[in-house]
């Protein structure tokens, strides 16, 4: 199994698809990388030669921030927002949506599972059912 960018071992899929298993590489970049290295995006990842794999690895390392480094970068950006206590930082601290979405309903991804509050409208009906 080929190894590209550290721990990632993309499966026996087309190169174009396999590259997307790397954190930080999506459809656009996967195609971009195939173009740059002149590798056929349709070839299965396990059919790639050693040489092609090292070419992929070299390009990814020099041109893109991926995996651990990218994760750290994202965390740092959030930490910075929290530190300067700007609006976006405060939303991160509170665990609420950051980009102006409504919170009266929905926003469950950020807020987590519903915490039912007694006495609020609709709760009585829920218990009767």
């Amino acid at each position: 199994m080929p190894r590209v960018a550290g721990v990632d071992i993309p499966a026996q899929k087309r190169t174009e698809i396999a590259l997307r298993y790397i954190y930080g590489i999506g459809p656009t970049r996967a195609r971009e990388i195939c173009n740059k290295t002149a590798i056929d995006p349709g070839v299965r990842a396990n059919k790639l030669t050693e040489e092609e794999i090292s070419k992929l690895a070299a390009i990814i390392e020099s041109d893109y921030v991926v995996e651990g480094q990218l994760r750290r970068q994202v965390q740092q950006n959030i930490a910075r927002l929290r530190e300067i206590r700007c609006y976006r930082g405060l939303r991160h601290i509170r665990g609420l949506p950051v980009r102006g979405q409504r919170t009266r309903t929905n926003a469950r991804t950020r807020k987590g599972p519903r915490k039912t509050v007694a006495g609020k409208k609709g709760v009585k009906e829920m218990h009767r059912a």
Partner: peptide, 19 residues
Amino acid sequence: ITEEMVGHKLGEFSPTRQF
């Protein structure tokens, strides 16, 4: 104002709603 705040707007540091 600290260096890190450059590029943000003044209002971002003065919340208008009470949590």
